[in-house]
Amino acid sequence: MTRLTPTPATRCGVATGDRPWARRGLIGLAAAVVSLFLALPLAFVFVAALRPGFGAFWAAISHPDTTAAIRLTLLVAAITVPINTVFGVAAAWLIARFEFRGRQALLTLIDLPFAVSPVVAGLMLVLLFGRQGWLGPWLLDHGVRVVFALPGIILATIFVTFPFVAREVLTVMQAQGSAEEEAALTLGASGWQTFVRVTLPKARWGLIYGIILCNARAMGEFGAVSVISGHVRGETSTMPLQVENLYNDYHAPAAFAVASLLAVLALLTLAVRKTIEWRARSP
């Protein structure tokens, strides 16, 4: 959350100029840590996935239960991310630009999903919407299934990923102040025009990072979804749950195949971010 305003990079040479060994040592240490804790496990996932050969890999990820899990995960992300984007921007804008009663409460509420364990979040929804919950019986009478079905998975994912967009956008908006918006308003722009033409473009980096983090978490969420999904194969198992299913089935290579696919999706998200950054910078 601190990478939002790109500052001109300080040359490392200037900062530790008189001690090049310290510089190299620190860089080496950082590189070692990164490769040990990030690159190596990631690489191992791909190695383990492809060890039995590409044919086996393909058989694993084209199994109907797995393709259903992939579809479900993408569908959940495709619904969750736009919803959290719209509400996240709205909440951030309210908090950054207005003083009102309950502002602090709203801010705390936005942070709540970070503080609450995902398992508790899932359980909360089961207690609320389950067959014996508060709202469950009424919903069932009207033919709506929430828990152990798609709506429950989406609700759980929305809850867990809500803070990302709101938090990122809020930080940028607060850092930038409201001078330019006030200028736009005095020059005769309407509220909506000001929002779309001044506020939103100024907050774009926060928004993009927020969407990316939100998307990554939405695809990778395990705990909350695990509680509310029911683990039905081919129906309510998302990709992370399918990884667990396969691993416990003693199909470790298939589990790694799905895991590697999940990793590819994450890398794809990063690539999309890079492309957007690049296109936004070039005129």
């Binding site: 495709a78 991310v81 736009p82 984007t85 779309v196 939103l200 473009p201 774009r204 928004l207 993009i208 969407i211 990316i212 998307n215 998200t269 999309v272 957007i276 296109r279 936004a280």
Partner: peptide, 8 residues
């Protein structure tokens, strides 16, 4: 503005 909606 269009780019914001590129990812979703």
């Amino acid at each position: 503005a269009r780019l914001f909606f590129f990812l979703p």
